[in-house]
Structure formats: structure tokens, C-alpha cells
Design a protein around this nucleic acid. Structure first.
Lengths: 238, 238
DNA sequence: TAGTGGTCTAGACCACTAT
DNA sequence: TAGTGGTCTAGACCACTAG
């Protein structure tokens, strides 16, 4: 592990544990450099990570102030799998896989998901059951050339864990879009919608590996009343 | 201006201008260092900015690959004012200010917006008219101790421009939340909603200055069919 | 093997905050 | 004025890609 990542994790852990409270100053960069026996630039790389993740605010001449992080009932910010969310947020959930198949997409489908027409694709549908209700419907399309094998069991657990830990691939970035769409017949069949739920919130993502290859298109369909997206944003200068 | 910010802007401009196409490699870090007459670390800081903004992907041993940036019909990612969006996206829009007042909040309102009860607050409502329809309703609450004066004219133009250029304050970061809510009576009065529009998409933000002071709460209410949120996300290691 | 990006250093000078 | 963070350097060594 890199030094600056280690130091970031350490400081993050301390902040989350309440060792530093909102409004507190972290030790100065020179003090941290001495403590961790690294150069100041290495400390600064760790602090940049804290900054970007909303843990601290740096003020020139003053120091690094710890911010108040209300952590997030149900964030879909960033690039995080459902399984990881469930674990970090500690909610109970069951996943059901009503559909999983490896096939060629027809033209219309291929255009919609932005994946190549001529390659085999894993298409699967997953229902997410929380408190006895089907709140979320995930529709996934994965390049079979990247993920040759896939099973119901893996889909019920975590595809990302399988891709990263078993296949040793590196998931890197995604382009995401959130819109609201009329509920489809499929939504009504596979989700617990009330009569008056005319629409669902749809999170579409194109996900890429670290070699810039597109390998996944996902549509995560949420019941309106249960949808919540939380984010931390910094104002971009220039 | 900093060297690395200059270099970032320069490279960003070149990418947007199509001087580098998706899939192209940027010049190597050493070549860029030579070209701009700076050290390699300075180049690397500029490249980190390109990376975070989704312009490039770096691959060790290979180089910095330019990504395909579909730029974003209507992004609310990041921390960007409506006026800035309108200018960068080149859409026509008119802003109407049906309400603007400086007052103390009542208890219920203060709790909801998370601003202090004992201080005067600018409360204002803005209707955003696009293609003849009121698509967005913005409700703003601003600390009067931070923004002592505010006028309808400023509110119709850009409050952020006023805060940054006139008051010389630095807007720094925000915590944002996106949810779907039933449309209120006020929504129906001030927005162009169809009968069947039972809900609106609400983007709530708490916005902070660089000294970590909370100075604004905003509620941006969108007609469902016109709402779109686009984001670029990187997978976080660890 | 040559060239690329990834990490880290030890030091310098500057801008800002606090006292 | 002392201490903080912000920028920048010139160099080192490592891990990885590609011919």
C-alpha cells in the first residue's frame, strides 16, 4: 500500500471514530510529516483525499478544519455497488434474480445501452427487496468478453466483488445519469408499486475498466418515495 | 494564476477543441514538462485535474488517454449556479422573482433549512422559464449577515456572481441531496405543471464558504419530465 | 530495453492567519 | 513575527507497457 493512502485511511478512520470533531484542526502538515516519517508533500496528498471526500476544509495560514459529515442514508454518489452500499449502510436486503441470460442484443436494445451489437452480452434483472417490498429494480448488461462466466449465485451476491476479486479486473469510472421515467409494465410486475406511482427514478450508468473499455451498462430503477441521492460537491474555480 | 491551473486550462481547452480526440494519448509527462518549462510534479498536478473531471484516463507504462466526454445537456453535478449552467449550455431562459424578503425565519422553517433561528435571512423564490414554461422553481435562503444587501435585479441575474465578484467571498463546497416529493400547492401556482404531474424532483443544497460557514440553503424544484442529472464518477479504492 | 506513469524526498519561497 | 498551508523544483527509484 502507498504511504499516502495509508495515511489517508488512518486519518479518515480517526475522523469517523470521533477522535477529531467537526471544527477541530488536524495537526499541521509539518507535524503529520514528522509523525508519519514522510515528506510534507506525501502528507499533502493524503490531505487532498480527505478534502475531496468532504472530510476537511483547508484554510491557508490556519490549518485543516474537520467538517461535519452527515453520512448519508442512501448515497448513490460515486461508483459503488448495491452490495457495498448495503454493507456500509447496514440495511437488510434480499436480492432476487428473475432473469439472467447470455445473448446477442437486438439492434434496438444495443443502441439504447451503448454496447456493441456483435458481441455476446450478459443481461440480467435483479429485484432488491427491503422491508418486504421490492424497492429497486436493477437491469444490467455486461460484456461477455470481459465477464465470460456469470451465475445466479454471483448475481445475488455481488458482481463487482466477483469482477475485482476473482477476475482481477479494475473497475475505474462511470458516466451516470439520473432521470424520471414513466413506470413500465415490467416495473409494475417486478416492483412493489402503488397504483398512484406513475413514475420511477432511473439511474443509468456506463461503467468502464481502467483500460478505458466499456464493460457494463446499468439501469437502476427506484420507487420514487424511496429514492435519495446524496453528494458532496466542491465549487470548481476558473 | 498558478502554473498547474494554467496548464490544466490549456489542456482542457485543447481537448474540448478537438485537438486531442478520444483514444489519443496526451504527450508524456516529461514532454509536457519540457514544453511548459516546469517540473514533472507540476504537470502531474494539472493531469490530476483532467483525471478528476473525466477528461483523461492514465495508464501506467502507457500514457494519458483522452476520454470521450459527452457533455451534458443539463448537469447539476458539482456546485454550479443556474446562470452559469445557462451560459455554458447556451439555452434561453428568463428568471422571475415573485418573492424576495429579509426576515427572521419561524421555528419550523429554520429547522427545515438548517439555518440559525436568531439571524436575519434573505428568503427568495425564483421561477425559471424555458421555452415558455416554468420548469424550475428555486427557493433560496441566504444569511443576511453574509449577504447584507440583495435586490430583485441581482436575483434575476446571478447571486453567485454578486457574492463572488462584488462581495469577494469564496463559495467553497456544498452538501446536496436529490429526492422526489409530492408537488405542493405553491409548485402548482408557480410552475407549469400538468394535471398528472403528481411529483417534482427536489435538489436540496447546503452551501458553505471557504471559512466553513454555512451561508445558503437552496431548494431547486424541477418538473419531473425535464429533470436530468449527469455525473462522472470514479471508483474509490480501499 | 526504452519509455511511460506512480511514489517520494528535502528543500525552497510565497501567501495567509494569528498574536 | 511565528506558524500555517500553497506552489514548485530536481532528482530518485519503482512498476508497468510495448517493441
Amino acid at each position: 500500500m502507498n504511504r499516502y493512502l495509508e495515511i489517508f485511511s488512518e486519518l479518515e478512520k480517526e475522523i469517523l471514530a470521533g477522535k477529531f470533531l467537526p471544527g477541530d484542526l488536524l495537526p499541521s502538515e509539518n507535524q503529520l510529516a514528522a509523525k508519519y516519517q514522510v515528506s510534507r508533500e506525501t502528507i499533502r496528498k493524503a490531505l487532498v483525499l480527505l478534502l475531496e471526500n468532504g472530510y476537511i476544509q483547508k484554510i491557508q495560514g490556519k490549518g485543516s478544519i474537520v467538517l461535519d459529515i452527515r453520512r448519508l442514508d442512501f448515497p448513490i454518489s460515486g461508483l459503488t455497488s448495491y452490495k457495498e452500499l448495503q454493507q456500509s449502510q447496514h440495511f437488510q436486503s434480499e436480492t432476487i434474480v428473475p432473469y439472467i441470460e447470455k445473448k446477442f442484443l437486438d439492434g434496438e436494445e444495443a443502441v439504447k445501452v451503448g454496447l456493441p451489437l456483435k458481441q455476446k452480452i450478459w443481461k440480467l434483472v435483479r429485484q432488491r427487496k427491503i422491508d418486504g417490498e421490492f424497492i429497486i429494480l436493477d437491469k444490467d448488461y455486461l460484456l461477455a468478453s470481459v465477464i465470460p462466466e456469470l451465475s445466479k449465485e454471483v448475481a445475488e451476491d455481488s458482481i463487482y466483488r466477483y469482477i475485482e476479486d476473482e477476475l482481477k479486473l479494475v473497475i475505474s469510472y462511470a458516466q451516470k445519469e439520473i432521470i424520471v421515467e414513466p413506470a413500465t409494465l415490467e416495473d409494475r410486475q417486478l416492483m412493489t408499486l402503488k397504483k398512484e406511482d406513475s413514475h420511477v427514478v432511473v439511474v443509468r450508468s456506463h461503467v468502464y475498466l481502467d483500460n478505458t473499455q466499456l464493460f457494463q451498462y446499468t439501469e437502476s430503477r427506484h420507487r420514487m418515495d424511496k429514492f435519495r441521492f446524496v453528494d458532496f460537491a466542491r465549487r470548481r474555480k476558473i
